[in-house]
Every structure is written in structure tokens, then in C-alpha cells.
Nucleic acid binder design. Sequence first.
DNA 1: TATTATTACATGTTATATCAAGTTAGTTTC
DNA 2: GAAACTAACTTGATATAACATGTAATAATA
Lengths: 257, 257
Amino acid sequence: MSLQRNQDMSHQPLYLQIKEALKKQILDGDYAPFERMPSESQLMKSFDVSRITVRQSLRDLHAEGLIFTSQGKGTFASKPKAMQDVQHLEGLSEAMTPKGYETSARLLSIREVKPSKDVQENLNINGKEGAIEVVRVRYLNREPISVDTSYFPIAVGQKLFARDLSGDIFPLLENELRVPLGRADVSLEARSADSDTAKLLDINVGSPIMWVQRLTHDSSGKPVDYEYLAFRGDAYKYRFQIERDPSRNSGFNEVIK
Amino acid sequence: MSLQRNQDMSHQPLYLQIKEALKKQILDGDYAPFERMPSESQLMKSFDVSRITVRQSLRDLHAEGLIFTSQGKGTFASKPKAMQDVQHLEGLSEAMTPKGYETSARLLSIREVKPSKDVQENLNINGKEGAIEVVRVRYLNREPISVDTSYFPIAVGQKLFARDLSGDIFPLLENELRVPLGRADVSLEARSADSDTAKLLDINVGSPIMWVQRLTHDSSGKPVDYEYLAFRGDAYKYRFQIERDPSRNSGFNEVIK
DNA sequence: TATTATTACATGTTATATCAAGTTAGTTTC
DNA sequence: GAAACTAACTTGATATAACATGTAATAATA
């Protein structure tokens, strides 16, 4: 296994490279659920790194739930997480498209920018690469309801310059640019509108807005779109259903033995 | 600072002892949010351990969201945000406890009331029946983060009078009152704090709050708890993942983006 | 044969030591 | 005075080393 070592720029830490390599193997099914993985000393040899570096990789994988360890026994691939149902999606789309209303978008700007720390971390790019920023205002029945600020990696984002961005970007990505979309991480919080946002949304400064951060990945798990969505508080409601988790178990050590 | 070292049995690893000591300091408010904490070398001296041990403690605290670091600058106490997962139905303290936060609740009132239209419809009771109203302020790390107003049908609610309501109500319902919980309907929106809420949450009137309505059913589908949760906007974040449904090309992609 | 040591190997914990890289404040230089 | 340099911090990454502790298979023993 060859790692990109510290000779020039543009390299990731060894432990991250190892983590990604192992992660890929697990996700590719090279290790079946509950199958034992190579021991730390084996990994040290095959990657030619110290134990600390190996353990740092394993710790990250553990934190992501991809592996678990058992002292004296070894390290094992986890059972892959069950897919979430799609009920959330239904709730969100329902909130977004009340029947009989039309949505549209107005493009404010599209340009290459030096990405902020937050954008860098989420898109997994370094500060030297640029990112493509797209700012739009979205309307529901002629009324502004959100300001969307999206960041794309250069490779993907450059293709957007020549496209019509007055509609939806996701179908454009999927159908025209052939970027298969996968998981998205979303967070919601209530904030106050700053003056720019307030002006665009036609509300008073300080009015409540729903602040949404969403990181969308392609089907291989690579980030393709990180965005901030500022929704007018009085025009946005997020509905969904959740199930009580009946299994309150702890730890998988029992499973092995 | 004296640590229990490896002389006999019944001791915890040094890094865990250090982690707990620092955690206590943070939760006790010895370090204000965003305040710089002692550097790694200072911690090495004061605890008389190696840097690796200190860093292991800090890594755990970081994973729990209690601190954040900035290379070259230092390590800082976080302003903790309550985060809940949408996948499962759980109360706040259930969600937060495994992440290293301390939660508590203060009971403001519990009484029988004539239910509002909204409560009647959601609990599926008529205006002649009463309902039990429980109002509480919930705290995270000693700071108020939400005002919870819950309504229960008489049958369930009466049993709550004799109970300790300073913790989470869900486990109480399930374990002590033997009410098996099932699905819940939830909605989130951003609102402004009214004067009562603002006073209880120690924020200014008009500050953004996350307004949550939640209707919880038992496992047979009968409503058992309808509640309004007013979260401080700066202390609450709702986070979840969604999967793209490959079988359907419409869905959330088109709607949102 | 059944039990007990032994041994080999697994992860867990901790120490010491470098070098890299980001930040800050002071000092020098132009 | 402003810009550049430097020194002294900070956290980040990585190597080598040792011992503790848990597990499993094998060998020795009762």
C-alpha cells in the first residue's frame, strides 16, 4: 500500500489516508460485517507507519461507527447502518411546496471564491483550491422565502457557469452533469436575520429565520455541495415523523463471543 | 492536581481522570464559553503526565463537543449546542447525556386545565374533558435552553403529580408508568420569543427561538403527549441525515434546490 | 480426561521525542 | 511609521518504546 508522504504540498496526513483506505474497503464489502480486520501490527507493516498512526485511523473509523474493537480479540467491521426511511424527505418537500404554489429562483451571483474554513472542512478541500459560490433567492408564489448560498468544488462548480440556475440545481447535477447524489447531512437552527438577508427576504432585521446547513454527497460519499439556506421564519415549517427506538442495547462485545 | 495512579486495582486511566476533571470545570463554568483553556504543556505540568495523555483527554472532550481547538491559538471551551437526532424519538436528556452534557429541568407548574382547540384536536379529546398541563424549564449545563409545555390526557397525566419531573419524562412514561411509546409527529419553525418565554430563557424579547410542536403516541397509536417546546435559538440545533431515494427522481431534490 | 500454566498475540495506556505549521508579539530594518 | 523579520508560543502529526490487560490456543500437569 503506497501512501503519499510528506514531500511536497497537497498531501493529507497519513492517518487520514489510511482511514480512507480502510473505509473504502469496508464500504466496498472487502470486510463482511463482524469480520476481523488486520491487527494493528499488521496494518503497521502493510502501511509502513507507526502504531500511533494506525490507531489514530482506527479511532476515527470507530467514531464513525464503521468498526469496533475488543481488547485481546481484535478489530472488527461493524454491521452497516440501516438505511433511514424516506419519511423526512416527504415532510420537507411538503413544507416546501404547498399545493398550488410555484417556486422559482433568482440568481444573485456565481463566482470563484477562496473558501472559508467551514466550507473547506465540509467540502474536504484545502485553502489553496478555490470553490464556486452560488447565491440565489428562492421565491414561493412571488414572495421571497429563502436565501441560498451554495458552495461547490471547482470541478463540479465550473460546469454550472453555463447553466440556467433559475430552477433547481439538484436535478441539473444529477441529470445533465451526471453527478449521482447520495446522503446529505442537514442541521436546522433558529437565528436572527442580518441586514443583507433581511433585505433580500423583505423582512425586518432581527426577524427569526430558519438557518439550514446542508452538506450533500455524491453516491460514493464525496461532498459535492455545501450550502447555507436562510428561510424566512414565518414561511417555513419543517414537519416529520419519528419512531421510538425499541432497542436500547449497548455495545457489541456480546455479539462476538 | 492529584491523580489516582497505577498502584492497585480500581483506578481509571489517567486520561479519563483528566478528562473528567476538565469536564467538571467546564460544566461548573470555570471556563466561560470561548474562553481559552490551559495549553497542553500547562496541562502536562499541572497533571504531571505526558502530552499524549493530555491530548487523549482533549480529544475525548472535543468529541463530546465540550471544547474546540485552533492550531497556533489554543484550546477553548465550547458554547454547547443541544443537538438531537431525527432518527429516533428521544427526550432531550436522553439525547444529550451520552454526549457528555448535563441536563436538568425545573418544574414551573402542573395542573388540570381546559384544553385549547389545538390541544383538543391533537390529543383527540373533547372540550368537556380536562387535560394535565406540565410547564417546565429545561437546563443544559446550568443554562436555560427551553420552556416545555406538555399536555397529557387525564388518565396518563394524573399519574405524573406524584412523580419527579426534574428529569426526562419519556423514560418515566415508559419504565415507571408502563406506557410504551411509538411514533411522534414533530414540526419545527423559527419564531420570536415573547416576553414570558424570553424571561424564562434569559434572552431578549424578540430573540429567535426554535418552536417545536411534538405529538407523541403510544405504541398503539393513541396520543399520550402533546407539547410545545420553545428552544433558545443560540442553544439548539437539529441535525439529521437524509438519503436520496433512487427510485424516485422527484422528492426533495427538486423541491428544495 | 479435566484442569491449569504457558505462550503468543490482540488492544489499551503512557512516556519521550521530533518536526510541521499556525499565531502572536516584539524587534529590527527600511 | 510601516513592513519585514524573529522568537516564542500554540496545536498537529508521527516515531519509538515499554508495560498493562484481555483472549485464545497450546502444552504441561494432576
